[in-house]
């Protein structure tokens, strides 16, 4: 049975591309340089709400990155190791760590500031179409 597309959300393209996957949602910023196991994509920080989850193949929906700008290279590490998120939506501010990290790693990225992603959970299927500046929320 085909997925039924329920919601279209407008967003701003930061890095082009299109991807589909299960959402991985957090309300907390990520510090790329200190929080990741780049071999597996798991978040190692016990205080983070994504502790022990992996970004691999997910659509990461989170506020923004914090910390050193060198954190951009961690996205590249995740990509080389095949454990990168399929696409990313920033819900607070699309910062330059995430923007430049996604640019060198070919990860579609959109700025979702101003839109509500509250109805989503980690079982929701999401399509990010950065080129057309649309996020589609699926229900079965």
């Amino acid at each position: 049975m085909n997925d039924l597309v329920m919601i279209y959300i407008n967003c701003k393209k930061i890095v082009g591309g299109k991807a589909e996957g299960l959402a991985l949602i957090s309300n907390k910023p990520l510090n790329m340089l200190s929080m990741f196991d780049t071999k597996t994509g798991h978040i190692k920080d016990k205080d983070h709400d994504l502790f022990n989850q992996t970004l691999k193949n997910r659509i990461l929906i989170f506020p923004n990155c914090i910390g050193s700008s060198v954190g951009a290279y961690i996205f590249y590490s995740l990509k080389i190791n095949g454990v990168n998120p399929k696409a990313i939506i920033c819900t607070n501010k699309c910062d330059i760590i995430t923007a430049s990290g996604c640019a060198i790693s070919d990860i579609p990225l959109v700025d979702g500031t101003g839109s509500s992603f509250k109805s989503l959970n980690n079982k929701t299927k999401v399509t990010v179409d950065a080129d057309n500046q649309i996020v589609k929320i699926h229900t079965v």
Binding site: K12, S69, V70, D95, I96, T98, A99, D111
Partner: peptide
């Protein structure tokens, strides 16, 4: 990508660049 994120309207010429990320401890294997 950075320009989009920072709401830049265009690119503008520069006279000089100074690059960080040289020490292996900062940029790592990636």
């Amino acid at each position: 990508s950075i320009g989009n994120a920072n709401n830049a309207t265009k690119l503008i010429p520069i006279k000089w660049a100074h690059i960080s990320g040289v020490n292996f401890n900062t940029i790592g294997e990636a």
